[in-house]
Simulated scan of single mutants.
Amino acid sequence: MKLGEQIKKYRSGCNYSQEELSEKLFVSRQTISNWENNKSYPDIQSLLLISSIFNISLDELVKGDLPAMKNQVLNNKDRKKENIYSWIMLLSFLLTALSIGPILLSDNLIILCIPFLLLIPALYCGYSIELFNKSVDIKTYSEILAYTQGKNVDELRKQRNKISYFFEQFAILTIFIIIFVGICVLSITMARFFM
């Protein structure tokens, strides 16, 4: 991020010490130091005052930092939301698979709709996650993994291969189906055992 470097550059260019700049901005010298070392960011009022003091546009001051600041805020918020959706989706699929055994062996036909109702949150969350992944241009498992760990996915995007992407998606879907069917079979077996 460049904002700290920008503040330091313009402060030095005007021959202000951190103390002098802090007095003009009505903040502590430590706050200026934190800004220059990228430990914290100035609020919008401080940014406007800084640009006014240095007689530069706000765009010049934060050039290159706006996308980084926006990504940092979005990534944290969206990553938490995506994690919640992932857990809801996983739990919904698990409950659906576990409910199939007892329901199939039941004499009541009305309760056959329960697995479909349990599947609705999983489908909604899966769709939401897919929309999010498309919006941030994440396609492969390795990109999703890197993104959730807060790493840069640009290098992985450059290495994308359509054929390997197809096989990766096919492998993920196949493994998921095998696990889902396995849990369903286990559920049916357990239901037969206890009934």
Rank of each mutant, 00 (worst) to 15 (best):
residue 123 L to W: 03
residue 194 F to Y: 11
residue 191 A to N: 12
residue 140 T to D: 04
residue 102 P to L: 02
residue 118 L to Y: 00
residue 173 L to C: 13
residue 130 E to M: 03
residue 127 Y to K: 08
residue 157 R to Y: 00
residue 110 I to A: 14
residue 148 T to R: 15
residue 12 S to Y: 13
residue 106 S to V: 04
residue 34 N to C: 13
residue 77 K to H: 12
residue 75 N to V: 10
residue 139 K to L: 10
residue 87 W to R: 11
residue 54 F to L: 04
residue 20 E to F: 08
residue 138 I to P: 00
residue 98 L to N: 04
residue 30 Q to P: 13
residue 123 L to N: 06
residue 96 T to K: 00
residue 106 S to Q: 05
residue 151 K to L: 11
residue 95 L to D: 04
residue 188 I to M: 10
residue 35 W to S: 12
residue 129 I to D: 07
residue 158 K to F: 03
residue 127 Y to M: 14
residue 140 T to K: 00
residue 98 L to F: 02
residue 177 I to K: 09
residue 155 E to P: 12
residue 132 F to W: 10
residue 23 E to V: 15
residue 96 T to F: 00
residue 59 D to Y: 03
residue 166 F to D: 09
residue 105 L to R: 06
residue 74 L to F: 09
residue 174 T to V: 08
residue 15 N to T: 13
residue 18 Q to V: 04
residue 130 E to V: 05
residue 107 D to I: 12
residue 164 S to F: 02
residue 72 Q to W: 07
residue 27 V to R: 09
residue 3 L to E: 05
residue 147 Y to A: 01
residue 191 A to V: 03
residue 23 E to G: 12
residue 14 C to N: 13
residue 105 L to N: 12
residue 145 L to V: 12
residue 21 L to R: 09
residue 112 L to Y: 10
residue 4 G to D: 07
residue 22 S to Y: 09
residue 62 V to R: 05
residue 32 I to R: 10
residue 194 F to C: 14
residue 73 V to S: 15
residue 5 E to F: 07
residue 47 L to F: 02
residue 185 V to G: 02
residue 175 I to L: 10
residue 142 S to C: 10
residue 82 E to I: 11
residue 59 D to V: 03
residue 49 L to S: 04
residue 51 S to P: 01
residue 4 G to S: 02
residue 151 K to D: 06
residue 123 L to Y: 01
residue 16 Y to P: 14
residue 78 D to S: 12
residue 133 N to R: 03
residue 158 K to W: 04
residue 59 D to E: 08
residue 81 K to M: 12
residue 118 L to P: 04
residue 81 K to Q: 09
residue 51 S to L: 00
residue 170 F to C: 06
residue 123 L to A: 09
residue 29 R to Y: 14
residue 53 I to W: 01
residue 25 L to G: 14
residue 86 S to Y: 03
residue 142 S to L: 11
residue 193 F to A: 13
residue 79 R to P: 15
residue 184 C to K: 01
residue 150 G to Q: 01
residue 57 S to Y: 02
residue 110 I to C: 12
residue 193 F to H: 14
residue 57 S to R: 05
residue 114 I to S: 05
